[in-house]
Design a protein around this nucleic acid. Structure first.
Length: 344
DNA sequence: GGTAGACCTGGACGC
DNA sequence: GCGTCCAGGTCTACC
């Protein structure tokens, strides 16, 4: 569990600076200003392994550039303004990430941007136990599953991933950013202000519109406190049961959000899990695949409390094999063709 | 508690 | 080009 683990002390804040940018002089040929930040990371940390480890890195507004091995996306700055951040890991100093922001930031804003990056890349989580248990995963630096800068975005992304093909999930997230978030991922306030019918029509989210907007309005009105789910030491089961009470989240979605919160002792079982389990372990797929749940759960008990990481490692390696190259080299259009419906 | 149907979209397929 | 069917997870009504 993320919050029960020993947290790494990576709070030092050195070398942050702002300087006149030469990247963009703007329409009036006036120099703009940006901020360059540094973020300390633990030994052995790999940016590309942390980013290219879970499908959400492909979803808008996230952008991984395989050529430059940099990650870019807008994050929330002060008073909700959008700050475009590019993250790289310099070869000369693997212990720090370089964050290039397109705006000049003050101290609180720098801290906010860093906190979002730390969440996305799970910089503060301690994976010692997992790496000890799984040497192959340790060699591949696999464990930090990519997630979103906010739990709200993680939940919406999970909803858009349910009951739909992956290519459709990609489209929904792109439209949410383009039509609602002005290029960034929509905030609860932005989504709360839209009528479900309008969201359905503009972002092609179908019946999910009501679920997404009800979530946004509950968060916006303070009826749902998402910070509660990120409390240190919150038991995984308590988080799971509370997630199930959110309208639109069932067992799969709640279990998936649990792993995004750093609780790995529960597997989010969907049709992809059935496919993987049956093909990998030579199990005949029953007419009612939900009968496989106890077998799947029992099989991964050997990896407790990291069941989901062990399962996802197998699945992710399978995707890389199917795609003929490691995830950091995938292009966005290449990542949508190897889920359950395509691989069976 | 268990089950069936509806929800929505894009893609595959048959004509 | 058009119509039909299917996949996907959750909710709700019904038994």
């Amino acid at each position: 569990m993320r919050h029960s683990h020993k947290q790494c002390d990576l709070t030092s804040d050195i070398n942050d600076s702002w300087k006149p940018a030469v990247l963009d002089r703007g329409p009036f040929n006036m120099p703009r200003q940006n901020s360059n930040l540094t973020l300390p990371v633990p030994p052995g940390f790999s940016l590309q392994a942390a980013v290219c480890s879970y499908g959400y890195f492909i979803l808008a507004p996230n952008r991984w550039d395989p050529g430059t091995r940099t990650f870019t996306r807008p994050l929330q700055g002060r008073r909700g303004r959008s700050v475009q951040v590019t993250i790289s890991q310099p070869r000369y100093d693997r212990r720090r990430l370089k964050l290039t922001c397109d705006k000049r930031l003050d101290a609180p804003e720098r801290a906010a941007i860093k906190a979002q990056v730390r969440r996305m890349l799970r910089v503060d989580e301690d994976f010692t136990g997992w790496f000890k248990m799984h040497p192959i995963a340790r060699r591949k630096k696999f464990g930090r599953l990519f997630c979103s800068p906010t739990l709200f975005e993680d939940i919406v992304k999970t909803i858009t991933g349910c009951n739909v093909t992956w290519s459709n999930t990609v489209r929904m997230n792109q439209l949410l950013c383009d039509k609602v978030g002005r290029g960034a991922f929509p905030t609860p306030a932005q989504l709360a202000a839209i009528a479900p019918a309008k969201l359905k029509a503009s972002c092609k989210v179908g019946y999910r519109a009501e679920r997404i907007i009800r979530l946004a309005r509950d968060v916006q009105a303070g009826r749902l406190d998402l910070a509660w789910f990120e409390k240190p030491l919150l038991p995984a089961d308590e988080a799971y049961q509370a997630l199930l009470k959110i309208y639109g989240l069932g067992p799969f979605a709640a279990a998936n959000i649990c792993q995004l919160l750093g609780h790995y002792d529960r597997i989010a079982i969907d049709t992809e899990t059935y496919r993987h389990f049956c093909t990998t372990f030579g199990v005949k797929r029953p007419k009612d695949p939900s009968k496989l749940h106890p077998r799947i759960e029992k099989h991964y008990t050997q990896y407790a409390p990291y069941q989901f990481l062990a399962y996802w490692f197998e699945l992710w390696c399978g995707y890389e094999t199917a795609n003929g190259k490691p995830a950091p080299q995938w292009l966005p259009h290449e990542a949508g063709d190897f889920t359950a419906t395509k691989l069976q």
